[in-house]
Design a protein around this nucleic acid. Structure first.
Lengths: 281, 281
DNA sequence: GCCAATATGAAATAATAATTCCAATCCATA
DNA sequence: TATGGATTGGAATTATTATTTCATATTGGC
């Protein structure tokens, strides 16, 4: 018996490619289809796959048998296993990272912990972000004459990134910060024709809250990124996003907030470009 | 009919979690199993899944029906679809999202793009980061009297985050930035007993390079985070990290750099604490 | 503690899908 | 171009799997 049944996808693939030349026409046809559409093989029924590949179900079974399987079903297992492994790798790796980080095995573990926290946060936010909310925020910001950016302490890096990106997109913006302690004055220039992006997480920096309150009392609409509906920022905001960042070693990730911030920024850029184009036309 | 059938996995998951409380015991049991072992649902037969979850096949079908599906088979489709999608690698997904965003597919696509870019970057860096390099950098920084942080433009948010974290850890640090244009003077205070974290990506901000050169000429050791071995920063650095961030819509992610920055920061914090403890003992 | 409504288990049934079989066709070779 | 073997198509058969049904158990309200 020189027939070694390929148990994993890569071996199977190699075997098929190897024999390609010597396969009968219809078998070759289904072989090509299998390598091109492995997902279909994993999920389809013999009949549906055969139809998609343009052959008879029986041919599909002969193909499987020629490879040493005892039928289509066992061939299909290989294709399913492949999907399973590919898919689990990500979650499992995250799990492993977290476990290793918990175990405290040197500095690599710290790094892994931050990577895991960031990944988790990204997963969470892409699950929970509300599309309508995003549209509303972008629409609001796109109308603004000047976009003010307000964030301190832990959220400050996000603010600087937003300011950088807005600048690159040639969107007028003002980061509310001042070495000279002129924040209050800066805030007082904002009008209802402007808008604010405010970012703050618990424990909320008092200055951020205070400035957000002042600016909202002037009628300037606020888009807030914060961590719960109890956040004082949420009550001043016209639109607000709840972002739950995972933490590690006492520091919360910023990855989800960053992704959202970029989406807002670039979204505003696009919306303005579209509006401009429409006006010209 | 108020029954909205969840067509995608996330919606389904949310629906299940939402109703969790009100589900009968066995149904709840299979619901929990489904969320814990989605792969098994995708590939198993009703009988095999029911057995693994410790319920009857009929319960599984009732579960599906309660969610608004017309049977187990249509519920299973959702789990299969999830595998299909998840399976496409991050790179492929990023590619697809880019195309989608180009085509003007709404703002959600932009957001998804940034999330995908961040995830890709995190994947890459956790694959490529060299442990020894990390140890060396942390050892070097832990010895420093003052840690100077140097980064402009796109990398500036990372610098502010490092400065924030170092501050929280009570590690003396100095962000090299000055509204008054006194960077050169600031740099001149650094001595070989200090250290620098410098971050710069192509196109390298000339000021960063210039200051890095000046500071290295004073014998101050530099830990650099940059994007290639050809980076001018790499040549001034005692230790350097190559970080390849994925980009989307013209903006590169910062997630990998952030994770590395946090690992460095917290690593230094730990190393100092350990050293302090040893000295006391 | 009893009743009705609801939930569960187990087996029967229906549906679906894989496999087999055989006749028809194709192809290489003499 | 005739012949044997290999290949293929399509329907029949068999196996597997989902679903339904109904008897039994459990639960919650009075």
């Amino acid at each position: 018996m020189d027939e070694q049944v390929p148990r994993d996808f890569e071996t199977l693939r190699a075997t098929i490619l190897d024999r390609r030349e010597s396969l009968p026409k219809r078998i070759a046809q289904i072989a090509a289809y299998a390598l091109d559409n492995p997902d279909d093989i994993a999920f389809g029924t013999a009949a549906s796959i055969a139809a998609s590949a343009g052959v008879q179900p029986s041919t599909l079974i002969r193909f499987a048998q020629q490879l040493g399987f005892d039928g289509f079903t066992s061939l299909q297992q290989v294709f399913r296993e492949r999907l399973r492994e590919r898919n689990s790798s990500y979650d499992e790796r995250l799990q492993a990272l977290r476990a290793k980080a918990e175990g405290g095995a040197g500095h690599r573990a710290i790094f892994d912990g931050f990577v895991a926290a960031a990944s988790t946060s990204l997963n969470d936010i892409s699950r929970t972000l509300d599309d309508a909310n995003l549209e509303e925020a972008i629409a609001l910001l796109a109308k603004a004459q000047t976009i003010y950016v307000l964030a301190k302490r832990r959220s400050y890096p996000v603010a600087t990134y937003i300011a950088y990106a807005l600048g690159k997109l040639k969107i007028r913006n003002q980061l509310i910060e001042s070495a000279a302690g002129l924040n209050a004055e800066m805030v007082s220039f904002a009008t209802p024709a402007d808008a604010v992006i405010a970012i703050s997480f618990s424990p909320y920096a008092p200055a951020t809250i205070e400035e957000a309150r002042a600016i909202s009392e002037q009628g300037v609409p606020i888009v807030a990124i914060t961590d719960s509906s109890f956040s004082p920022l949420a009550q001043f905001a016209r639109v607000w996003f709840e972002v739950a960042e995972a933490d590690f070693a006492g520091f919360r990730s910023l990855s989800a907030t960053m992704a959202l911030a970029m989406a807002l920024t670039v979204g505003v850029g696009e919306k303005r470009r579209d509006a401009g184009r429409r006006r010209k036309a």
